[in-house]
Structure formats: C-alpha cells, structure tokens
C-alpha cells in the first residue's frame, strides 16, 4: 500500500491548486473534471486506475450539475483529487470505493461553498468600475490576484482534507473487501443508475430520452455478453 510522504503531500497540494483554479478562473481546460483530477490523485498515491474509477462515478454524479451562470454546483477538482488519492491508499474494495465517492461528493459541496465566498470577494475587487477604468493596470492586477486566490483556495482544500480522507478510508469496516461489499456494490450501482437517469433527463428529457438511454444500456449489455 503506497504511503503519503511529505513530498507527495506537497505535490498533491499544488495539484489541488491547479485543478481548483481550472474549473472557473483559468484556463478551463477541464483538468478539474473528476475523471482527470481523481486519476491524478490516484497517480500521486501510486494507483491512477483506482483514481479513475472514483472519478468515473463522480463524473456521472456531476453530469446533473452543469455550471450554468450563477448556479451552485459541486467544485469537483480538489474534491476528486482527494477522493482518488484516498481510494488509492485504501487497498481497494468496493466499500472503500463507496466511501471515496461519498467523500468526493461531500467535499465537492464544501468546495462549492468556498467558490461562493470567493465570488463575493471578487465582487469587492472589480465591483466598482470607476477606479478600474481610470487605471486599467489596476484591473489587470486584480484579475491576476483573483486567479491566484482561486489557486490558493484549491490548494487549501486539498491540504486540509487529503490526510483526513486517507486516514478515514483506512479505518472504514470492510474497506479492504471485508463484510459489507454486497451492500456497498448495491449502493454504488443505485448511485450510478440514479445519477445516469437524472443526467439523461437533463440532457435529453422526455420519452426519447428514455429510449436513447435504454438503447445505450442494451448495446452495452450485448457487448459485455459477446465479450
């Protein structure tokens, strides 16, 4: 089982800053998506595949929350990085996966609250046009400061939650494939299915949405059977 040493912790915190700032502030190339951030977290702790599995489930959960305007949605970058890293040190097991996904989802909403606070601060930075239009250099400095603050926000979230998440996941009963995998497997399947259904409703509502979702599922069943 890989260990979380000081150097890895530092790199993870910096990566947390990067995936935190990417979601909204700069440059929005989607390294903040759970699929990428959780894989990165898993990689830092020695198992990118474990990270990606967490990221894939979180991705389905997040599909229901597109970042429209002022809507609140989970801040997936640092949360997925922490969850992916935690699952990588857990030793595997479906119960650990369920715990890692829950951790990532909860942290995502904690992150959403910090984004809300940062947006309030941004309002103070650029809310008054007069001083900025007189001295455009001030606008440039404040724009860069805001991006820097968002980086710090992601880094702090990662710094605060990485170690607790890695510790908690190791003490969960059945985390190494013990007594409760059936329940955990059922819960995860329910979560994935529910998330997919809700996301499908948002992407393509109505009866056609049902049919398209069923067609995709059926195609996958056929592929699995043939394989």
């Amino acid at each position: 089982m890989p260990e979380l040493d000081a150097w890895t912790y530092l790199v993870a915190v910096l990566c947390g800053g990067l995936v935190g700032v990417d979601a909204v502030s700069w440059p929005q190339v989607m390294i903040s998506r759970p699929l990428v951030a959780a894989t990165l977290g898993g990689f830092l702790l020695g198992d990118p595949g474990a990270g990606l599995l967490v990221g894939a489930v979180l991705e389905l959960l997040g599909l229901r929350h597109p970042p429209f305007g002022a809507a609140r949605y989970p801040d997936t970058g640092p949360a997925a990085l922490v969850a992916g890293a935690a699952f990588a040190v857990s030793g595997g097991g479906v119960t650990s996966l369920a715990v890692a996904v829950s951790t990532g989802w909860l942290l995502g909403w904690v992150g959403a609250h910090t984004v809300h606070l940062l947006r309030g601060l941004n309002g103070r930075l650029v809310g008054q046009p007069a001083p900025l239009s007189v001295a455009p250099g001030r606008l440039e400095r404040r724009q860069r400061l805001a991006v820097g603050l968002d980086f710090a926000r992601g880094a702090l979230l990662t710094a605060a939650f990485l170690v607790p998440a890695a510790l908690v996941i190791r003490v969960v009963p059945g985390s190494a494939g013990g007594p409760a995998p059936s329940v955990a497997a059922a819960v995860l399947a329910a979560v994935v299915g529910g998330a997919a259904g809700a996301a499908a409703g948002g992407l393509f509502g109505g009866r056609r949405g049902w049919l398209l979702l069923a067609a995709g599922g059926l195609a996958s069943v056929v592929a699995l059977v043939l394989a």
Binding site: L60, A184, V192, A196, L212, S220
Partner: peptide
Amino acid sequence: VVLLGAVTVALVAKLQGGGL
C-alpha cells in the same frame, strides 16, 4: 444519452465487489 446508457451498464459491471 445513448453513451450514458452504455456507460452506466459498463461501469456497474466494472464495480466488482463480490457478493451481489
């Protein structure tokens, strides 16, 4: 949405946990 249906089944199949 078609892809979503396919991913749901493939991912559930991947979540191997024993028991169920």
